[in-house]
Amino acid sequence: MSVLTVPTGRPRHKVRLLNRLAWFLVPAAPFLIVLALWALAGEIFKPSRQTLPPIGDVVAAIYELAVSGQLATNVAASLYRLLLGSLLGLVTGVIGGFIVGLNRKIAETLNPVVVFFNAISGIVWLPLMITWLGIGTALAVFLIWNTVFFIVFQNTALGVQLVSEVYEQGVRSLGGSRWETLRSVTLPGALPYILTGMRTGLGFGWRALIAAELVGAASGLGTMIFDAAEFHRSDIIIAGCLIIGTISIAMDRWLLLPIERRTVQRWGLVADAEKER
């Protein structure tokens, strides 16, 4: 757009440049405001280090955690669980979603059970699963699987049901086998829904993981902040929260969004992914 418009005067051009700069910088504003308020609160109320540590303490805590290798260990433990649980959830959810999506009878029969178990998916299983699986990776993986599964399952079933029958009939009448139809029509047709399910599922899964790690694990980011609470190390808690948020954003931005966008572009379908401005 800026290439096409001929700058008519210097001031105007300057304003546009300024606007662009503002547009680019503006996402940082809320973070800066929070930092300013935080610093201000520290100056005015002079809270104890346990209540509200100074910003410097939190930065130091992050540095300390990173240097000592604690951070890497805990992040790796959390991500490993998330990966395992989500992969299981994705695979079982897609398979289940296909079976249900392709068969109306099964879908109708199973629906009430799915709705109910979806309502208690995730953290609600924690007490029962601690008794059955004990504290550790299996527990966290189960909770993530349980969370991701239902979201992916329901989205896949919906996507499969929404694929227009005309396309399937088209491929079949051209001699495509049942398998061929599934692979080249139903799967790509349902893919945007599967990916939306995956994205939402990972959001819920990440929460379930942190909650599970608070009580049900010996390592991981949740354990890290929960242990810090015992020693009233607020700096580590806040550092942990910042890291948890950053990882979550990074996963969404650099992993899920690109995959989603690519598939949506590839098959020319519009999912309700956010519009780029």
Partner: peptide, 12 residues
């Protein structure tokens, strides 16, 4: 904020 689940703030 949505990425930092509420439960992570619980200890604080």
């Amino acid at each position: 904020l949505q990425g930092v689940s509420g439960i992570a703030w619980l200890p604080l």
